[in-house]
Design a binder for these strands. Structure first.
Length: 322
DNA sequence: CGGTGCGGCAGT
DNA sequence: ACTGCCGCACCG
């Protein structure tokens, strides 16, 4: 034991000589914000993982996303920052990892989610469609579970194969290699992830087993017929691919499967569309916009409920009087 | 809810 | 002349 300790000390001393000019660091390791915490990948200029804690109570509040701005995180050295200009005209949208709507409780906390350290290049259809419904689903879990903890982040997964010629022992051979290929955007060369992940730990009460769910979603449009459960994976797969042990203090032997427990049903696409077109009808300020929204319902073959139909008729009356 | 782009208007 | 901000219209 003493010998092992001694040798370790000798190694540590040698290490100090080798690293005379300092240990290479990636700072800050973890950024603590008011209502979310994250690890930022300074080379790729996107978050590695972003953690949140949702409860029914802390989802309520009056913070508005209209008062927020996407902006560079000035707490980072300039060379590690991404900028709005990197995203502009790139074809990729600025996707929140900690979503704004999870931070209604406090305007400053919501503002912090617009720091580009919480943002990555995301396919816009994925962002406003499937991923949006996924986020709604996460908030909905607080109706069943007291505490919902979420870690969201990115993965780079192999997405191609190529035959390459290599020389092994002086002999040339052709073998097939896998590749991970991803675009980089803007002057800062912000990495576009191939996949996004979410890990959910939901606790019904402070006692009892946690429900655990892990998901990997490709960063591309996902058509409406796809179900969330198609993207469920073992937690270890995300840990293996991300290089992070994501829940080191959780006793995995005592967890339940979230989707066996809950079903993991996303809101149907029809209900989802109806919800937002309904908001446009109820909030219409001009006759043109009202009729346009109403027309959209017909085009998309959505059937409004009684409440929406009366809201439309009253709005029509109100606007025609002006 | 999640985003985009444009036009006007101020401040350097 | 460039930049940031804000309101507005638009889309899924």
């Amino acid at each position: 034991m003493l010998i092992i300790l001694n040798s370790h000390l000798i190694l540590a001393e040698r290490g100090r000589q080798i690293l005379k000019y300092g240990v290479p660091i990636q700072a800050p390791l973890v950024s603590y914000n008011k209502n979310h915490s994250l690890h930022y990948d300074q080379a790729k200029k996107i978050p590695s993982w972003v953690a949140e804690h949702l409860t029914a109570w802390n989802l309520k509040g009056g913070a508005e996303r209209q008062k927020c701005n996407f902006r560079s995180d000035a707490s980072l050295p300039e060379m590690f920052r991404s900028k709005n200009e990197d995203y502009r005209g790139s074809g990729w949208s600025r996707g929140h990892m900690a979503p704004a709507a999870d931070h209604k409780l406090d305007q400053a906390a919501m503002n912090e989610t617009f720091l580009l350290t919480n943002i990555l290049p995301q396919d816009i259809s994925n962002n406003s469609g499937f991923w949006n419904r996924f986020e709604l689903f996460c908030r909905d879990l607080t109706k069943k579970y007291e505490d919902v903890r979420i870690i969201s982040g990115h993965l780079m997964m192999p997405n191609g194969k190529e035959d390459v010629t290599v020389s092994i022992g002086g002999e040339k051979k052709t073998i097939t290699q896998k590749f991970i290929k991803y675009p980089v955007i803007g002057e800062s060369e912000v990495a576009v992830p191939t996949h996004l992940f979410k890990v959910i730990v939901a606790d019904e009460s402070s006692k009892g087993p946690s429900s655990l769910g892990a998901f990997i979603v490709p960063n591309e449009p996902i058509s409406r017929e796809h179900k969330l459960t198609e993207y469920q994976v073992p937690l270890e797969e995300i840990e293996k691919r991300s290089g992070f042990e994501l829940l080191p203090a959780l006793d995995k032997s005592k967890t339940k499967d979230l989707c066996s427990d809950d079903g993991c049903q996303l809101m149907s696409f029809e209900k989802f569309e109806l919800y937002f077109i309904g908001r446009r009808i109820k909030g219409a300020t001009t006759m043109n916009r009202l009729e346009k929204a109403w027309e959209e319902l017909k085009i998309k073959k959505l059937t409004p409920d009684k409440d929406l139909t009366t809201a439309y008729n009253e709005k029509k009356k109100e606007l025609s009087q002006q």
